[in-house]
Design a protein around this nucleic acid. Sequence first.
DNA 1: TCCTAACTTTGTACGGCGTACGGAGAATAA
DNA 2: TTATTCTCCGTACGCCGTACAAAGTTAGGA
Lengths: 261, 261
Amino acid sequence: MTRDPDPSLRLLWRHAAPGQEPQRRRGPKQRLSVDEVVDAAIGLADAEGLDAVTMRGLAGRLGLAPMTLYTYVPSRQDLIVLMVDQALGRTHLPELPDDARLRLELVARVQHDDCRAHPWLLDVTGVRAWLGPHAADRYEWQLAAVDGLGLGDIEMDQTVALLVGFAGSIVHAEHRVRRAEQESGVSDREWWDANAPALGELMAGRSYPLAGRVGLTVGEAYQAAGSPERELEFGLARIIDGVLAHASRASADQSPPAPER
Amino acid sequence: MTRDPDPSLRLLWRHAAPGQEPQRRRGPKQRLSVDEVVDAAIGLADAEGLDAVTMRGLAGRLGLAPMTLYTYVPSRQDLIVLMVDQALGRTHLPELPDDARLRLELVARVQHDDCRAHPWLLDVTGVRAWLGPHAADRYEWQLAAVDGLGLGDIEMDQTVALLVGFAGSIVHAEHRVRRAEQESGVSDREWWDANAPALGELMAGRSYPLAGRVGLTVGEAYQAAGSPERELEFGLARIIDGVLAHASRASADQSPPAPER
DNA sequence: TCCTAACTTTGTACGGCGTACGGAGAATAA
DNA sequence: TTATTCTCCGTACGCCGTACAAAGTTAGGA
């Protein structure tokens, strides 16, 4: 009836095993552990991006032949799944404060900081990674942060998605320009200085009254196209205002002792 | 003084040229146009993802030898830049309604729909693509939608980033599971049915009271891990509430004729 | 008119990628 | 001891982006 379970699942949950692991295996012992391999891969991805995590490159860094990696991990895709959960697991999830606003902020900030530390997390696609132990722990923690506001189960899930999604989108946008700088070897400012005249010429005839004014103001304020930190602060404040207003409205509607009418 | 401008800029703005183009060129005419090449690439990416846009594959689809593409486009990376702007240009930016709430919704919905139609837009990194003509038009349109709310220039920019970032994050999350289904050939539901028992076994000993309850509720409500449409509606409503509340507060503070105190 | 320079199209080739396959040697189970 | 099972790794295949140069086509200048 049930198909064979996904083999990478067992690998993902290898540390939470129900104790049936310590059966000795036949061949020679492995030089490294899966954790060491995954940690090295995370380090490589942090430093040079997910594309730099090649089986050859990673093996070289570990002093192994490329094909040896396949005795630790079934494939590159599975390695990435393990990287995601292991990276999430490095962050200690802090205790939740009493104040609701601070709790919601914390959810977004933890996600933001993790994405910033491991920008490749946002590049991972085609993967069911949210089912690892650390992802599960995190989801539980996130739900605890939005619990007790008077939201229903579905709204709790949606609130987490809202906070986490927005935090990720900020890093995603920032990551786009960082990568462009890194790959081209030209900083955003240098590129702009070199291309502004040509761009102005090409844009001649078109008018961008608002974009021109706003772009100028933003550029002067931050010496850059934008400030991810400020965008996070601004968006987060608006989002939490909206969520808390909704929550107090919802719990007022549901609480039987209506104050007055 | 100024370095050579980025050659891909001229290609990006090729249609907005200041009329100095129609000089005849010497060799034989090209069989295709840049637009046709880019359109074919967009079709390929829409259907099979950005990874499927290989120079060989695209050339084959166009009936060309792989290297011929390099007479239209300097590199694959530049092709992708052109794809982004051309995809954005396909969407007609609707007239902005009078109601502020509707205007903000529209900004998010247009972005959401475009990302949904071209999910590979979210995979594009390492590229300065927002400087194409259609990207510029869109930014101007987005700013017009948040104009007149009483926000300062920087806050206008941040509001656009908030709406657009959130809309993108919804599609990004949805795209992750779609790709996982597509690449593995197993639907999310099938995968879950096959792996739920094994997963339950692996999770034994750990308790996820909230995640268990909420996950169950969400799963029953949507027959899936979540509903992107509902997440968009929910998040958008909260965000716009927060933005409008902030805007009315800000404009009340700034308006010289204070009503009373 | 013909020559020449510029341009398109293309074949070949190089170095990189993920990984299938099979062999050699080591460690355990029998 | 022997058989089995595991680790490690060399080789190879089919992909990728694209550098390079040859061959063919066109327009401008003589």
